[in-house]
Simulated scan of single mutants.
Amino acid sequence: MLTKDVSDELKAIFASLDAQGKEPSVALVKHRLSTSVPMPALINAIRSWKSQAKVPKVEVAQPEPEIQSSEQRIAALETQVAELINRLEALETQLAGKAQ
């Protein structure tokens, strides 16, 4: 399972709230997070910040990437190949123009 460290994001949020003169609360912090953090981890981070001005390492599970069907993958690859062919033809035309 892949994880993502959100400790730095939490530090930035706490510093921002502190600069605004606001006390970190679950609602304020949760609203500003870009990633969903479990409530117990969030409460623990807020308590740690309030008592020691430190944020413990907080990691959350990243969602598994969506698995595409073979047909979807093939269609995406065909589109990518067509785009690359167009780019290659444009570069060849450009180089042919400079060679003359």
Rank of each mutant, 00 (worst) to 15 (best):
A96H: 06
V58Q: 00
D8F: 07
P24G: 01
Q62N: 08
L33R: 00
E71M: 06
Q68E: 14
V26I: 14
N86I: 05
N44R: 13
A53G: 09
W49P: 01
G97F: 12
L77K: 07
S16C: 07
P63T: 05
K57D: 06
R73C: 11
K57H: 10
M1E: 12
A90V: 02
L88W: 06
A19D: 15
E9Y: 02
M39L: 15
Q20D: 14
A19W: 03
I46D: 02
S51R: 12
S69E: 09
H31E: 15
N44Y: 06
I85V: 15
L91I: 10
S70N: 14
N86G: 13
S51Q: 12
F14V: 01
A19Q: 12
K57W: 03
N86D: 15
T35C: 04
P40I: 03
S16L: 08
S34I: 04
E23P: 00
V26R: 07
M39V: 05
I67W: 10
L84N: 08
L33P: 00
E92G: 03
E66Q: 13
Q100G: 15
L88Y: 09
I43D: 04
Q52A: 15
V26E: 15
I46Y: 03
L33G: 00
E89G: 08
S69Y: 08
K50I: 10
K4C: 08
K54V: 11
S51F: 09
K50L: 15
V60K: 02
A61T: 10
Q52T: 14
P63W: 01
V60N: 05
V26K: 08
F14M: 00
S7N: 05
P24H: 04
E83K: 10
E89Q: 14
E59I: 06
S51G: 06
D8S: 09
P38K: 06
L2D: 15
V26G: 05
R87S: 13
V29T: 02
M1Q: 09
I74S: 11
L33S: 02
V37H: 01
Q94R: 15
P38L: 04
R73K: 14
E89A: 11
A61E: 14
S16W: 07
D5A: 05
S51M: 11
L95I: 12
K22A: 08
S70H: 13
I13D: 00
E92S: 08
L77N: 08
A41R: 13
Q94H: 13
E23N: 10
R47I: 07
L2W: 09
I13A: 00
Q80M: 08
I13G: 00
K98Q: 13
S25C: 02
K98H: 08
L84I: 04
K11D: 05
R47N: 15
I13M: 04
E59K: 14
K50A: 13
Q62W: 03
S34M: 09
